[in-house]
Design a protein around this nucleic acid. Sequence first.
DNA 1: TGTGTTCTCGTAAACGTTTACGGAAAAACG
DNA 2: CGTTTTTCCGTAAACGTTTACGAGAACACA
Lengths: 341, 341
Amino acid sequence: MASSIHDLARHLNISIGTVSRALNGRADVNAETRQRVLEAARKLNYSPNQSGRSLRQGATRSIAFMLQPHPGDQQYGEPFFIPFLTGLQAQLAEHDLDLMVVMGEPGQYQPERLRRVVETRRADAVVLANTRREDDRIDYLSRAGFPFATLGRSQSGGDTYPSLDIDFERAGEEAVDRLVARGHRRIAAIRPSLDLNFGYLFLDGYRKALRRHGIEVDPGLIADGFINETGGYQVTSRVMLSKDQPTAIIFNNDAMALGGCKALAEMGIRPGHDIAVIVIVDTPLCRYFSPALTAFRPSLEPMGRRLAEMLLASLPAFAGPEGTRIIREVWPLELVARESD
Amino acid sequence: MASSIHDLARHLNISIGTVSRALNGRADVNAETRQRVLEAARKLNYSPNQSGRSLRQGATRSIAFMLQPHPGDQQYGEPFFIPFLTGLQAQLAEHDLDLMVVMGEPGQYQPERLRRVVETRRADAVVLANTRREDDRIDYLSRAGFPFATLGRSQSGGDTYPSLDIDFERAGEEAVDRLVARGHRRIAAIRPSLDLNFGYLFLDGYRKALRRHGIEVDPGLIADGFINETGGYQVTSRVMLSKDQPTAIIFNNDAMALGGCKALAEMGIRPGHDIAVIVIVDTPLCRYFSPALTAFRPSLEPMGRRLAEMLLASLPAFAGPEGTRIIREVWPLELVARESD
DNA sequence: TGTGTTCTCGTAAACGTTTACGGAAAAACG
DNA sequence: CGTTTTTCCGTAAACGTTTACGAGAACACA
């Protein structure tokens, strides 16, 4: 059906070797011959069969992204990933690389799904997200010697892979600074109960800022919940029922913030009036919620592009003249001040 | 590095043909030999190289999903797709098929990105979403003779491909019925201005129900806007400024509903009190918004699974004993009554 | 003219599979 | 024991590429 390099060769009455060389821009082919080959390729609508190419070159020219819903996230997923993927894919496409998405079991972090990709060599590298503090997937890929990069840091695997993360620590600090400047002393921190690394980073910043302001860290104001709206609802209710209520809450997750505001509304507590609310990762929800939620916003699409670059820089086949480099970056978040604090 | 079928053969001192047959469960191989092969495969950690297999069999065992952000949707994407993808992938995985995601240019519906997949044969079939009434991608795939299925109907391509859609028409009807039953006569319909097919279906249902109730369709109450929060904000403002305000609004898109409610809030109009609001496609936003928005909810994850089945049933290589079938289904939405109407 | 260099191309092997074909050995059958 | 059938396995080709190697022709240079 589709034309192969053999068809071109037959059509032009030359050998397949020459056709291949002409197509790949090698030097040892006559200029006029190359022209004829390119024309014929256009005329016969030729494009190279990726399977054949992969087999010969030992590279698939595709990168796998592991998209793993959180547990309890069945109904709707994080809007976070679409723009990130857009950027990732755009950058990969510039290097003629495809993006393949492998979905993990919601909640589970075992590397089973990854194993398939690695062992059958369906991709040349992997991009991980939602990194945990101790991450089985990172351990597995490291041991297997399979190239990868992560969106988010982890304690697993050392500094052997590229990673791009958001500065949750700094955001935690800034949030506290902002609230303290507005007179708050009792500031709650609500984060997911999973081992997700950003929960720790956020808390580090939160604690650090409190101490800097000479405010004692009250364990009763730090709470973990399920990483979705229901979890936010539950944990917020609990925190607000404590004897010594907070006057401000920092949510470390947008979904939890939504659920939390629901709980507040039911208790007759209005964000922006009766309590201050800041969300660490902004989504459209925050903007269109009433009241609009003050939040820290990441640049997702540029982050996707950047992580693609960083991954490629670590791969021998794509690294530039300086050779392979392991790049790790932490990007700042931008505070978007709205009505809730 | 990774072991091949040749390694197994050498290790067992038999031919690669026998190894392959043993691995693939063919009948013409001695039971004991098969055992030895399987053991060796486990011991040497063998798994078949997908490129080699694809080349030989002319099939990649991967399905491409085209994920195409709407224009103006750069910052965050639709939460819609993650659970759908989860189901799609889960079902494909049961047939040992991979899912590949190809992102389109936001807004553009030309088939360029698809062409790559088709021409270099990187996938065995394609799944499309966000179908438009006239869809270049469907035309292209049809002409190319490349197998595909769609989430959403279209007028392009006839009935030659499997499709699964939500019953937007019925949802439009039900929304009107519900509002009329509550005494509303001036009901606005707000939908995206793009050529997206569901916008038409929704409007058909809306008009049909109005006529059934003997209510004249007022063109001033039907409005199109950009398919995001900003678009919803703008078009809702416009509609509410008309001389003869509606007492109810049906939003055909969750993002537009959010923006619309923002506009209402700024005008001091409270959904559930001063105006009734119904949203056609539910998201977590609707649930945690204040007031919680009455909405129609799809079963995204099951839909993903089902569309995978339907696609496979249309492919000769996977069709069951009854042979290939083109299945088209339209699934109902479930009304989730909340506080906004 | 002879020698060395450059340009251009064909040949063939290789990547890892699957599978059609045929043949040897074993089993079944008379 | 001879013939036929069955069981099992090896051989080799094929899928579509890329690329190392070598060879012929053209050219440069002395």
